[in-house]
Amino acid sequence: MVNMIILAVVFVIGAFIFQVTLSGFSRKVVARIQKRRGPTVFQNFYDIGKLLFKESSISHGFIFDFGIWMALGSTIATLLFMPVGGWALMPKYANIIVIIYLLAVGSLGMAMSAVGSGNPLASIGVSRALTQMFAYELPFVVIAVLIIYLAKSSNILKIIEYQTQNGWNLFSMPIGALVAYISLMGMLGKKPFDTPIAPAEIASGPLVEYSGKYLGFLMIQHEFATFIEVGLFVHLFMGSTSIIGFLIKYIIVYISAVMISSVMARLKIDEVVKFYWRWPLGLAILQAIITLGVRF
């Protein structure tokens, strides 16, 4: 039990340091693309630290606070279910459906807190975020279900095992991987799917009222959520049991997403829905047909 707790703490802190450093590095990458020098790699640590220890922050009532606890708390909880490479804190319960839905608690908490601030811009942002979630989840689910069906388990470790025996899903279902990658961009809120926080339209939407430690918490929540989402993609399509291998693949997936995002413009929210339901969803169904056709 004590072992478990120590492991859990090490895991959470490790994931935090890894992802925050990586996102600092990604800022460097984006800066280079934009012909800038960019901030230091550790900038995000400074930002989070500065925000957390700021002496003044504004609260808009109990729901505003409560949503933040719910958001970060459930994201950390989700992280504990998440395997890394072949290792997991609770190997029996590394269930993909649980992870996807627990992550939704975080989104719900954040949405609640944002709307609880009473700012209509936040409310508009949340309505967009939910719409976008509706858009990208569907193609992703089709592919995820396909993989679960092939691996005969919704346990991520079993899915990784299946891939070590049969080769990466990335190669056996390239279209599906593409679809999932596009969905991942939507999950991460990378352009062109950053409509919920569009600064020029709704002044950063849900984030509009946050300051100080609230914003710091949300930044941490965002980093953890990113870790889970990108990790999920790596596990589903490039599964292998080595932890180092996982991290390398993770970096490749994440940095490529950041690079693509830096030369993209933002779509309108209804175009996001139309896009996801036209192309990725169509391709996902195509992939399902192909895969099933090959197997039977």
Binding site: I33, Q34, K35, K191, P199, A200, M264, A265, R266
Partner: peptide
């Protein structure tokens, strides 16, 4: 135009 549409590479290049 990168500002309102989110293509931040545009303004950065233009400023250079």
């Amino acid at each position: 135009i990168g500002g309102p549409t989110g293509l931040y590479t545009g303004p950065n290049w233009a400023l250079v």
